[in-house]
Structure formats: C-alpha cells, structure tokens
Nucleic acid binder design. Structure first.
Lengths: 207, 207
DNA sequence: GTCTATAATTCGATAGAC
DNA sequence: GTCTATCGAATTATAGAC
C-alpha cells in the first residue's frame, strides 16, 4: 500500500488540476505542486502528460456514478424511486459538476481518447443509471404504475433536466448572482420542478 | 471596407480555431494559417492572444441569438409559437453547438472574462429569447391559452431539454453510433418529444 | 500595412547522481 | 525511488526592413 501512496497522490492532484484547467491549460509543475512531489516523479510514474491525462479521464469516468444508487431504492414504487433518484442525482451532480463539464469538453475534442475511454468503461446494466432506469420503467409499466414510455426519450429528458443547470451554472450565476444559500434554495426548487414535470408526464391518470 | 478585410478574416479564423481547440489549445500560427495571413498581423490588429480571445468571446456572444426569432412568430397562439420555437431552436443549436460548448467551458474557467463579456452584452428584452418567452408566457396565461407557470422554471426546462443533447452529442454518438441521416431523425424525434412534454405540462385542460 | 528574422519565455521531458 | 540540473522543442511576442 505504502509504495503506491505517491502514485495516488499524483493521480488525485492530476484529476484536480486537469478538471480545473483542462488538458491544454494544465501544467505538470502545478500537478506536482498540488501532489507535493517533485515534478520528475510524474514522468517516473506516468511516462508523459498524454498518458497521465488518459489515466485521469479513465479514473473520472470510472468514478462517475459510484454512489448515486444503493440497494435501498430497490423496493420503492416508481414514483418514489423517481423522486429519490432526482434528489440524489442533483446532489451528486452538484458535487461533480466540474468533472462533468470537463468530460464533455475534453471528450468532444479528442475522438481517439473518447473511443479509448468508452471502450474501456464496461457498462454494467445492473449498476449504471441507464440500465437501472430502463429496467424500472419496464417494471413500472408492467405493474400499471406508469404509462409506457420510450426509454431513450425519458432518460434524455431526465438527464437534460438534471444536468444542464449545473453545466451552465457559472454563467447563470454571473447573470443572476446567487450566494451559496440562495443556490441551495434554487437547487431544491429545481428538484421539485423536475420531479413534477416528469411524473405528471408518465403517471397513468390524465392522459 | 476593404481596409478592414484582413481584420475580419483574422477574426473569423480566430473564432473557428478557438472554438475548435479552446483558448489554451489554440495556436496563433494556426489562426494565421486559417486566415491566410502572416502571423505578425494578428499582433498588429489584436495586440496579443488574450486580447484576441476576449474579442472572439464577445463576437460569439453577440452573434449567439442572431436569427432564431423573426417577426413571423409574433401573431401565433402560444401552442404554435412553442412548436416553432423548439423547431428553430434545435436547428439553430445544431449549427452552433460547438460555440455553445466552447462558451460554457471557457466562461466557467475564467470568471474575470465572464464578467467582462456579460457586462458588455446588452440584453434587449424584445429580441432575446428570455424576454420574448417571458412576455409570451404572460400573454398566453392572460388569454387563458395556458396555465400560469414560473418563467424561470419554464425557461430552464425548455433550454435544458433543447441544449443538453447537443452539448453531450459527441459522447452520445460514441456510445450510440449514428450517421448523419440517423442523427437528423433523432433530432426530429427530440423536437416532437420536447414539444409534447412541455405543452402537455402547460396546457389548460387536464390539470 | 506587411514581411522576415529572431528574441524571450515557457514547458515537457531526460540525464545522471544519490 | 527521488532529486538537481538542464536540454530542446514549441510558442508568443517584438524589432526592424521594406
């Protein structure tokens, strides 16, 4: 364990600096400083900047949806499942918003890396959001809790409504200044609004 | 006019290269090549890279919502207005998706520039989407075409649903490969889905 | 206004001692 | 494994001729 400590310190610092500055804006020296190690060690452990960057991307993708879901959502009716999912998703995205923006930016700019990252990210349908939500939609429709809806449409709607605000947040906050307390209120309101919109759309009554 | 030709060539090339590569990834030489001029002229007309970058940001923001709206939407009932707006907005975003992603990325990373750009962008409520939609919502609610809804919520829902797919598109296309024809079909379907979702939510009957 | 040539700097990467 | 010292490439910016 101990012998990997430096390597992990570098990786953690690299994630931080790359996410903050982007690939081209990140400096090896700054990563070394953030990790508290000599710059040379970055090359010792990770060969060069490109390699380190790729490892950082893979780590970020691997950690993306680590802890949004847990087993305690398993037994819930779809309405409660959706409510809890949106609640957790917002909190989760609020923590990881910088990482999401970083991924969408860097992966859009480097098809080769994108391909590599996607290929290596094994998507387990039992633990990733897409698979879980799809299964839940089918199950709930079969039980008559909701009407039948296209998985792709519903998931795209949900993720658009959950994610977009956080990606645009720095710009939004410049136009409509909010302190952290106000932001927390806005997030709470958005959770309720998104749930209301989506649930009204799929619940059975009133078609 | 003629004497400004070189300056405009440089500006157009700079927009292209900055949007494609980001500020840190863009090279003055590449911009010069794209403009077909000597690299020195970039400094002659725009002093340095920072200045050119700032001018590029301002131009992109100024051109953002140039031609989505025209007067022929003025007389439409809200339902048709919404339908046409979403239709045009999607087409517009599809063209400018790279510019949107660039803005959200760069402005998030540079608060000082963000402040500068926002301060200089005069928002005319009669021609920008936010002002127009707000006025339309009030008008339609007063006429009884739709129920009363919060402007901020509705606009955030609309822009989330319109924009997010395009920001995530490179990643989506890697996971679900689509040729251009397939993409056009998907966009068409998303237009219909977004309209359906939003209209069902605000129409009067069935609350 | 435009060009060539080059200065000045930053940064990734490596050599080699310990 | 870690450090110091330094190389060499890339890149922005400028000096000065035309």
């Amino acid at each position: 364990m101990k012998e990997k400590q430096v390597e992990q310190d570098i990786m953690n610092a690299a994630v931080k600096v790359f996410v903050e500055k982007g690939k081209d804006g990140a400096r090896m020296q700054e990563i070394a400083d953030a990790a508290g190690v000599n710059k040379m060690l970055l090359h010792y452990y990770f060969k060069d900047k490109d390699t380190l960057f790729l490892e950082v991307l893979k780590k970020i993708v691997a950690d993306l949806y680590d802890d949004v879901f847990s087993e305690d959502l398993a037994g819930l009716p779809f309405k409660e499942f959706l409510y809890v999912f949106i609640d957790r998703h917002f909190d989760f995205l609020n923590k990881k918003k910088a990482a999401f923006q970083f991924l969408l930016w860097e992966l859009s700019r480097n098809r080769a890396v994108l391909k590599d990252v996607v290929a290596e990210s094994y998507i387990d349908p039992d633990t990733n959001p897409f698979g879980i939500i799809s299964a839940r939609l089918d199950e709930a429709a079969a039980k008559g809790e909701i009407r039948r809806v296209g998985h792709a449409d519903f998931i795209m709607n949900l993720f658009s409504l959950d994610l977009f605000m956080f990606i645009a947040l720095p710009v939004i906050r410049e136009i409509y200044p909010m302190d952290d307390e106000k932001l927390a209120t806005v997030i709470k309101q958005r959770k309720a609004e998104v749930f209301r919109l989506l649930w009204n759309d799929i619940k059975k009554d009133c078609v």
